[in-house]
Design a protein around this nucleic acid. Sequence first.
DNA 1: AAACCGTGGAC
DNA 2: TGTCCAAGGTT
Length: 353
Amino acid sequence: MDSFARRLLAWFDEHGRHDLPWQREATPYSIWVSEIMLQQTQVSTVVPYFERFMCSFPAIDDLARADLDDVLAHWSGLGYYARARNLHRAAQRIVDELGGELPATVVELMALPGIGRSTAGAIVALAHGRREPILDGNVKRVLARYHGIEGWPGTAAVLKKLWRFAEQHTPSSDVAAYTQAVMDLGATLCRRGDPACERCPVRRGCRAARDGRQAELPSSRPRRSRRQRRVHVLLVRDDAQRVLLERRPATGIWGGLYSFPEIPSDTDAESWCGRNLNADVRGRRALPPIAHSFTHFDLTIEPTLLELGADSSVVMDRPEWLWYKPAMKSELGLPAPIAALLENVFDRSELCE
DNA sequence: AAACCGTGGAC
DNA sequence: TGTCCAAGGTT
């Protein structure tokens, strides 16, 4: 075992995190679920989602049997919803084709949707204690600083170096503890901003600490201008105060979740309603646009509120449509901004007249 | 290879 | 307020 791993393990015993929800009664399944939820998502955000998810789907069979809508509802607000669809699909494949047990090798795990090399390594190391490296955001930051690796860790060349060091440092014994230790070091001491080098167990060998370059490593992502998108949506409300929601396609933003129906920018709201809904429109009001800033693009939602007449019983229906009532919310997969907009529709007096 | 996929924390 | 980005993976 090299000195990096040895010092890290000693530090972890006293200062590491040992009481996270997925660390008690840890099973391959619970570790898998936690690793998927933790992808690009901070621990404090994941905790309540993990508790609710494991309560509703305590074992792989429960997840495999569940409706995708129910799984997406549990994921509402967490983001990156392909993770939930992949998790559900993988659970079904495990139950149907793999005897109901999560595979225990990196190669087999990576064959499942949503599991890449790092997540596969984490499952093998944490659940089975077998020697496999991981390379998540924490490890990238720790290793980039410790070895003074230049360049943004999104490029293949930098990743290759990082993986080699990750493999080199991973010990053959105490793999589970080491894996948790590296992540804890990155999360609690070797933070992105204001790293606590004076308390770091591996400061002695750290290139960045020696050169005072902690703030410059790892190099940040190249800047990129964000794309602008404008979307026109309809808030169709009938006289029973129900609102029309539409299930979005499985690919793209908010895939598989419910949102308001989008209409082409050059289409008039009432003509769309006449063609698609076959209902009579009693009132129409343009609502103020809502701006959202995502990582890769800026989205402006331009909502139009349509009130249907009392004879709205003649409205057409489609499989992707759902007439929403407030009580249904907890069972629905809703994007956070759409959930917020719905709250306004039903709670704000200006809209409820 | 580079773009895409969400949300909230931190500064 | 805007910007960066986090227990990454897929296309």
